[in-house]
């Protein structure tokens, strides 16, 4: 019994240590944003990786999400004779909630995992030690471009996701269910307000920081992982990073929504 309580205590301490370490990591990355020289080309590379290369998956998933939403809403709304409001329903749920969340999930799956594994392998190959010994800060040189690229890319990806989702809803609503296209667009225009858009952008920026932070930090501290090393540790931290960033992101989503709605 006593041993179990002891173990619980030990786990708690480890968790808090992890959290503290990751917090310090994030503050170091943020404070390195303005230190010179700035790696502009690295930033471009990361935008191409995080943003531009995510376009196909964002376009596809956005389109299908919008189409499914339209189908679902139609099935419910037809009973109330409120199908005219389908545009509003589809766009509101996309812009406020599904757009930022689904985009972040897609980026976590595609970019978060890759970034975490890449950084963990760099750690294993002593690349960070090498950078430190060359008096080049790994935070400035490796982390800052990734953080900034995520902060720039996510709002853009989210807007594209929203738009393509609305378009998907239009396809189903207008061509499949015979709604009037004008009405669809008109209700969107009436229902989406500036504060909905603000929500989309605030959420996507917060999610960007969360997902890239957790991916980078988990990879960066791979050598502190207990009981595993080498390739196994890389696999383990990558899994952890994906799970942790998805859950943290959804938790943050709830917090932000409850403040902004």
């Amino acid at each position: 019994m006593l041993a179990q309580i002891e173990r619980l205590g030990a786990t708690t301490i480890t968790r808090f240590e992890d959290l503290g370490r990751m917090g310090i990591f994030l503050s170091r990355v943020f404070s390195s944003i303005f230190s010179r020289p700035f790696g502009f080309r690295d930033l471009l590379k990361q935008i191409a990786f995080i943003g531009a290369s995510s376009m196909p998956i964002i376009l596809l998933s956005g389109l299908f999400t919008g189409m499914v939403l339209a189908l679902q809403f139609y099935a419910v709304m037809v009973d109330f004779g409120a199908v005219e409001l389908m545009g509003a329903a589809v766009s509101k749920s996309l812009v406020q909630e599904l757009g930022p969340v689904m985009t972040a999930l897609m980026v976590i799956a595609r970019v978060g995992s890759a970034t975490c594994a890449e950084i963990a392998i760099m750690r294993n190959e002593q690349q960070f030690d090498a950078l430190t010994c060359m008096a080049i800060s790994p935070y400035r040189f490796i982390m800052v471009p990734r953080l900034l690229a995520a902060i720039i890319s996510l709002p853009i990806l989210t807007s594209i996701y929203n738009l393509i989702g609305i378009f998907g809803g239009y396809l189903v609503g207008v061509y499949l269910k015979g709604l009037s296209g004008m009405a669809y667009m008109q209700t969107i225009e009436n229902s989406i307000t500036w504060s909905d858009l603000k929500m989309t952008f605030i959420k996507s920026i917060i999610f960007a920081v969360i997902l890239i932070w957790i991916a980078m930090a988990k990879g960066f501290f791979v050598h502190l992982e207990k009981g595993v090393s080498g390739a196994e540790a890389v696999g383990k931290v990558t899994t952890k990073a994906v799970v942790a960033s998805a859950i943290t992101m959804l938790f943050a989503d709830y917090i932000v929504s409850s403040f902004l709605i």
């Binding site: 590379k45 890449e118 392998i121 760099m122 190959e125 002593q126 690349q127 030690d129 090498a130 950078l131 430190t132 010994c133 060359m134 008096a135």
Partner: peptide
């Protein structure tokens, strides 16, 4: 320390070249 390090060179076991 950064200044000191510029007058030190380190060759790591596996080269530790940046993979990117």
């Amino acid at each position: 320390l950064a200044k000191l390090r510029q007058s030190m060179g380190v060759a790591f076991q596996g080269g530790a070249l940046l993979s990117s």
